[in-house]
Structure formats: C-alpha cells, structure tokens
C-alpha cells in the first residue's frame, strides 16, 4: 500500500487531479450546507452578472443561482458517474469472466451479445434508451450502464483468457476447487488493477454522457445538473456568458481530474507497462 502511494505520487499530474477531484467531492458533499434549499428556486434578480446581488457566479434568466446549481449539480454528476460505473463494471466482469474462463460456445455467445451493444454508437444509444424510458435519474443511470459495460467485458475476458491457463490456476484444479471459487478468489484479484483503471476512466465518460443527455433535455427534470444549466443558458450566451461558462468549466476540470487520477492509477497499479527510462 505504501508502495502504491509512492508510485502514485510520483506522477505529479495525478496528484493534482486527485486534489481537484477531492475539492469537487467536497463541494458536492456540502452543497446542502452552503446552498440550502432547492437549487431550482428563482429569485427576483434574473441575469445578474457574477458578483452582483450576492450571486457569486451570477444568476440565470429566471434568477436561479448558478453557483448553487453547480454545487448541487456536482452531487448529481458524481453520483450518476459512480453508480453507472459500478453497475457497468459488475455486469462487464460477469460477462467477461464467464466468456474468458469457459471459452468455446459460452465465449461465442457472450461475446456476440457484447458486440451487438458495442456496434451501436454509445451516445446515440444512450439517447435512444432514455427517450424510450421516461427521463429520470434511474433511466439515465441505466442508459449509461448499458452503453458502458461492453468495454469492461472485453477487458476482463482478455485478462481471464490469459490467466486461466497459468499454472497456479491449474494447481487449484488439482486441489479440486470449484470453478466459481477459482474465478472469484484466484483469477479476479489478479485482474483488479486494470479493472480499477478502466473504471476510473469510465466515471469521467459517464459524467460527460450525463451532461450531454441533460443538455439535450433528457435529464431528470427534478434534479439539478450541469448539463441542464448549460442547456438552459445556451440561448443567452451573448448576453449572459456566465450561465454556460461556469458549469462548462466544472465539467471540464472534473473530467480532466478524473482522467489524471485514472492515469496515475494506471502508473501505480501496472508499473511494468509504463516504465520510462
């Protein structure tokens, strides 16, 4: 574990990413304390510039506080990103593990199913899914999960294919260990590193997809989200630049931070892949 931190902190950008990400998480956690109440609540000061009328980052066309929206939106984005990723990793690991471990016809069937999902462009697929279900936070999470899991499945399948013929797995067979136990207790711990890395990067992608859906009006209408604020402010970009700009920056730095952390995790967990002279 100490070793892990040493390798992680060697990558300065990853540490920066971790700091930014911590700040975003912190803001999301205290959103209800610094901006209590409903972020949709409008005031009598529409289109205030940043700093005017007590609005730190300005207000939108009906006087909603942009800063409050960003703080509450952070919670939405992070939660959706995290839950969708966890679900996608869960499904992906199951598909990948069975396909890689059993091979043959099981592999053929599971991988053909995976390919069906992979061939449809993911964002358009997500739009379609949310449009079919009604826009709500659950349907957004489901849509992101459905478009994200195939990547995990492919990765895990590859890892299992490589590990299942290793001698330590054969040794488990000679001890009479069951398949499920071999998969869970013996092989899976050996492919956790790449799963963690791909998972961390998937959180960033999930946040982008969520913002994109909200921007297109497919987000949950009752939940504040960064994409929603941008979508709302886009028609007033020339009179009130701050409405779009600040949530845009929030998305940018959050996604960037998560990517940096993911890179750092990759360096720290797979040191051999990245050794530079």
């Amino acid at each position: 574990m100490e070793d892990f931190w040493k390798r992680f902190s060697r990558n300065r950008q990853a540490v920066l990413g971790l700091i930014i990400l911590s700040i975003v998480i912190f803001v999301a956690a205290i959103a209800n304390i610094i901006y209590p109440g409903d972020p949709f609540l409008y005031s009598k000061f529409p289109l205030s510039a940043p700093g005017e009328n007590g609005f730190l980052l300005g207000s939108d066309s009906i006087g909603r506080d942009v800063a409050s929206g960003i703080a509450h939106g952070a919670k939405t984005s992070l939660l959706i990103g995290l839950i969708a990723t966890l679900a996608a990793v869960f499904i992906g690991v199951i598909f990948g593990a069975f396909a890689g471990y059993y091979g043959g016809i099981v592999d053929d069937i599971l991988m053909r199913v995976t390919e069906v999902f992979q061939t449809i462009p993911s964002f358009i697929f997500a739009i379609l899914l949310v449009a079919i279900m009604k826009p709500s936070i659950e349907s957004v999470v489901i849509a992101i999960t459905v478009v994200s899991w195939p990547a995990v499945a492919r990765l895990v399948r590859g890892e299992f294919l490589g590990l299942k013929n290793r001698e330590f797995v054969q040794a488990c067979h000679t001890l009479g260990m069951s398949d499920i136990r071999i998969m869970l207790a013996e092989i899976l711990p050996n492919c956790l590193s790449p799963i963690i890395v791909i998972g961390s990067l998937m959180v960033a992608t999930a946040i982008l997809i969520e913002s994109g859906l909200a921007f297109l009006g497919l987000g949950d209408p009752n939940v504040m989200s960064w994409g929603f604020i941008i979508s709302d402010g886009r028609s007033m970009l020339r009179v009130a630049w701050w409405i779009c700009t600040f949530p845009g920056i929030a998305i940018l730095i959050t996604v960037l931070a998560i990517n940096l952390v993911g890179e750092g995790l990759n360096d720290a967990l797979n040191p051999r892949l990245r050794e530079r002279n």
């Binding site: 290793r166 054969q170 000679t174």
Partner: peptide, 13 residues
C-alpha cells in the same frame, strides 16, 4: 502435482 515454473505456479495475490 508439482509444476514447472515457480513464478507462474503460485497465485501472486
């Protein structure tokens, strides 16, 4: 059974 490769035959985790 005793295996050939002492590095591959024990689970590193």
């Amino acid at each position: 059974m005793v295996f050939q490769d002492p590095f591959a035959s024990l689970n590193p985790r």
